Amino acid sequence: MHELKFRFWDEVNKRFWCGGQEGESIGKETFQTYFKDGALKAVMYQPVSYGFKDVDDYEERELKQSQYTGRKDKNGREMYEGDIVNNEDNETAVIVYDSGSFILQYPDSPLDFDSLFDFQDKELEIIGNIYENPELLEVENG
């Protein structure tokens, strides 16, 4: 079994947060993780005052979550759900978690996919991710 790790995409601040960074802040927002209804949640929260006291409540903004695959690419970088990779044939694919398994889904053939575990680590290279580099998945129409 692989190490269970997650990273969390913050669309507003255009960055990833990881476990262990809880309590770190940007501006008035602070990163926090917690379990709710048996699921891990990550949020940016900020204090809110309605004039009764300094802090009357907190507003939360939920972050998008990506799970670690347990694998590294040919450069030793950890591969996460949502990473965009190239294989040895220079085909571009995105790592997706589906039906209990990590798969490589090809943007030019949405019904075509491979198991991530069919590839050796040295056969794949991370070139970006769906949050910061969505243009890498654009399919040219010829």
Rank of each mutant, 00 (worst) to 15 (best):
residue 9 W to P: 01
residue 63 L to P: 02
residue 66 S to K: 06
residue 25 S to P: 07
residue 12 V to G: 04
residue 36 K to Y: 07
residue 108 D to P: 00
residue 95 I to L: 13
residue 25 S to C: 02
residue 36 K to M: 04
residue 80 Y to P: 00
residue 20 G to C: 09
residue 72 K to P: 10
residue 64 K to F: 03
residue 81 E to L: 03
residue 72 K to Q: 15
residue 135 E to I: 11
residue 131 Y to K: 15
residue 34 Y to S: 07
residue 79 M to T: 02
residue 138 E to A: 13
residue 6 F to V: 05
residue 36 K to F: 12
residue 42 A to D: 02
residue 9 W to H: 09
residue 28 K to Q: 08
residue 129 N to R: 04
residue 124 L to H: 03
residue 7 R to V: 03
residue 103 I to A: 01
residue 34 Y to Q: 10
residue 76 G to K: 02
residue 23 G to R: 09
residue 101 S to Y: 09
residue 130 I to S: 08
residue 130 I to V: 13
residue 48 V to I: 12
residue 101 S to I: 07
residue 26 I to R: 10
residue 35 F to D: 11
residue 67 Q to W: 07
residue 130 I to M: 12
residue 108 D to W: 11
residue 142 G to A: 10
residue 73 D to K: 02
residue 118 D to W: 07
residue 51 G to S: 14
residue 111 L to K: 12
residue 126 I to V: 13
residue 120 Q to T: 06
residue 120 Q to V: 00
residue 113 F to P: 00
residue 88 E to G: 08
residue 9 W to V: 12
residue 11 E to W: 07
residue 80 Y to M: 06
residue 115 S to N: 11
residue 122 K to I: 03
residue 105 Q to F: 07
residue 113 F to A: 06
residue 57 D to V: 09
residue 72 K to S: 13
residue 95 I to F: 01
residue 77 R to A: 04
residue 135 E to K: 14
residue 82 G to V: 04
residue 22 E to T: 07
residue 104 L to Q: 01
residue 77 R to V: 04
residue 117 F to A: 04
residue 96 V to G: 00
residue 29 E to G: 08
residue 33 T to E: 00
residue 103 I to N: 05
residue 104 L to Y: 03
residue 123 E to N: 10
residue 98 D to K: 14
residue 129 N to H: 12
residue 118 D to Y: 10
residue 47 P to N: 13
residue 113 F to K: 10
residue 88 E to S: 08
residue 41 K to G: 01
residue 72 K to Y: 06
residue 120 Q to H: 06
residue 55 V to C: 08
residue 64 K to G: 03
residue 142 G to S: 10
residue 118 D to K: 13
residue 63 L to M: 09
residue 115 S to V: 01
residue 14 K to L: 12
residue 40 L to D: 10
residue 56 D to M: 07
residue 53 K to H: 13
